[in-house]
Write a protein that binds this DNA or RNA. Sequence first.
RNA 1: GCGCCCUUCGUCUAUCGGUUAGGACACCAGAUUUUCAAUCUGGUAAGACGGGUUCGAUUCCCGUAGGGCGUACCA
Length: 475
Amino acid sequence: MPSSPSGVVTRFAPSPTGYLHIGGARTALFNWLYARHTGGKFLLRIEDTDRARSTPEATEKIFEGLRWLGLDWDGDAISQFDRAPRHAEVAREMIARGTAYPCWSTQEEIEAFRETAKAEGRPPLFLSPWRDADPATAPDAPFVVRLKAPRDGETTVSDLVQGDVTWKNETLDDLILLRSDGTPTYMLAVVVDDHDMNVTHIIRGDDHLTNSARQTLIYRGMGWDVPAMAHIPLIHGPDGKKLSKRHGALGVDAYRDMGYPAEAMRNYLARLGWSHGNDEVFTTEQAIGWFDLTHIGKAPARFDYAKLESLSGQHIRAMDDSALLGELEGFLAAQNRPALTDTERAQMLRAMTGLKERAKILPQVLDMASFILGKRPFAPDAAGAKALASAPAGMMEKLTSRLRNANWTPSDLETVVREFSTDEGLGLGKVAQPLRVALSGRTVSLGVFDMMDILGQTESLARLEDCVNSAATGA
RNA sequence: GCGCCCUUCGUCUAUCGGUUAGGACACCAGAUUUUCAAUCUGGUAAGACGGGUUCGAUUCCCGUAGGGCGUACCA
């Protein structure tokens, strides 16, 4: 079984009932960061004991999501279902140790018990008559195996995030370990697997905090050490309510499709609930170096798209050009859009400085690159048409001919255009704006001189001529 | 119902009894500018409420309110 130099072993244990949602992604990230920070191991286990709800497609989706986020796990992913025989074996051993017992109570009996308990104002925790019964009186029927939980005293979990949390044992029931069909329940399976996988730190959502008390009882029932626990607060939607599909509870692939770079996603998710002083923008390497469990907050955090987007923009701007180009090509591929040609790639690289200053997410970079990716003739958009229309009659034609003899460098082009605007008695903006539209079809783009430089003289002039011609035909 | 957890600007958060309660996002104003974005400068904005403990509480304790999670032969 796995071990690591530092001794730290963390795990992410999703159930494959859908995609990898954002809360799960953050849990995975925290486990991964902690393992990488400590030089330990990060394991992956698929909790697929619920056969009715688990699908191979969902498992694949989870792998995909983790891979996109760059959260590589150590060794092969473990299927919890495959370990069912081991779980049953542990249940039998607990019976032998006297910390578990077979129970023949039927669903109806349990139901009835709960109803009367409720009616009498008592806690609805089921008290099985088989807990101390003579096995000789047992019917010849299927049975479940229940934990023989202590009825007195209390159980304390020393949580690394939540601190010491204590329950009176009378509030914890004899939960089912093995179902009547012999399959393990989640409670048993997690404990056995975490133990067998040598997991030292369980980092998971705090919806499991109550479970940790019951699981502690199972560890004790087997005489095993209880791993360190860290229950991290959940992520809420922008409205403070539970995450739903309407806002943040999308699969991580949805964020990939929206064009957030994985690194920005890691940064944002790490900052949601964890802090390193006032550091807001950081690389994954820094996060690994800084990450700890003591600076995880206790309160749930809301998902905020505006901040994610801002962070995304900062990461895009900080990325070096070739890395960003790679990011863009990956995005294009994921969208099943055509790959870049060599020419486009070269032009994109030259334009990158200007492109990345204007974008917060990947599609915006691509959109800004439409003057490279698009083809002549460029039909101006609504605002562009307006800008063109407001230019003095014949101006574009005069400008085009003036440009024909220009020396094609950004600074010379700027000189020519500035002289032209002075000669025409126009502000530079009055000339540059129509020029921009002629080159790109839009009113928003890189600097016009940079575009002309990247496009080259032939292509630039051709676009200007397109513009003049379409004006002549009275478009 | 019972158990457990949580509560600092609109949002994410810093603060480990003494601060003009700091930063970031968003927002507002200004600067810059061939457009947009970026950038720079400035600004608005917070300790849920009530009791304690203490020379002194955002910080420690109790209660109230609000929110969340759990209470399955789901995970």
